[in-house]
């Protein structure tokens, strides 16, 4: 973005920190996962059952919020087109660290049934660091919850550091993104 009067132009900061009660805080992070309700594909249909009465994700501390600013988890719920990818990148970058991404469904793993589509991104982790993949087409809410359990486990163990990877290798990710997204009209980094 050349014209920078509307946007902050800086590159993201690399963050390294160590906490005194690392384990405790990781536990807290794992127990309180706020999911931004951003539906990219058919998987977004599976989210409402997950958080409502039948499967009740809230009992694990997983609840939805309406804005990326407050969210911890971004669910990429299904196939990603190039057009959607731009928005996903923006939403992801607007979330505040630490943040995690859950890839939902076969499409995010390798394109799934759209593996040969001219418009479906096959390898999402090239563009966004995925912490947990949930396979299936589509995975049932139970599977998603299992995925969340995996994510919690990773967070508690301190291994869910996709966001750190993204920041550390920001140039590489950006290069990958720019490879498939022509005419990059969004800011250098979506603050």
């Amino acid at each position: 973005m050349k014209d920078n009067k509307y946007f902050l132009d800086d590159k993201p900061d690399k963050i390294s920190y160590s906490e005194v009660w690392q384990k405790f805080f990781n536990w807290a992070r794992a127990k309180s996962l706020w999911v931004v309700a951003y539906g990219t594909g058919c998987g977004s249909i599976e989210i409402p059952p997950m958080v409502t009465s039948r499967f009740d994700a809230e009992r694990f501390g997983v609840s939805t919020v309406g804005t990326p600013r407050q969210a911890d988890v971004l669910i990429i719920s299904g196939y990603l087109a190039v057009k959607t990818l731009k928005r996903v990148i923006r939403v992801y970058e607007q979330m505040q660290s630490p943040k995690y991404v859950v890839g939902l469904g076969a499409c995010t793993v390798n394109g799934g049934m759209y593996y040969d589509s001219y418009n479906t991104v096959n390898l999402v982790e090239l563009y966004i660091p995925i912490d947990v993949y949930v396979a299936g087409c589509m995975p049932r809410p139970e599977a998603i919850l299992a995925g969340f359990a995996q994510l919690m486990k990773k967070i508690k163990e301190g291994r869910a550091d996709g966001w750190k990877h993204y920041l550390d290798n920001f140039e590489q990710y950006r290069k990958n993104q720019e490879k498939i997204i022509k005419n990059w009209k969004i800011p250098n980094y979506n603050w």
């Binding site: 920190y17 127990k31 309180s32 630490p98």
Partner: peptide, 14 residues
């Protein structure tokens, strides 16, 4: 309580 602790310990803000 957990939510509050998590919010306080987020690393970045705008």
């Amino acid at each position: 309580y957990i939510d509050l602790i998590k919010l306080i310990r987020k690393r970045t803000a705008i």
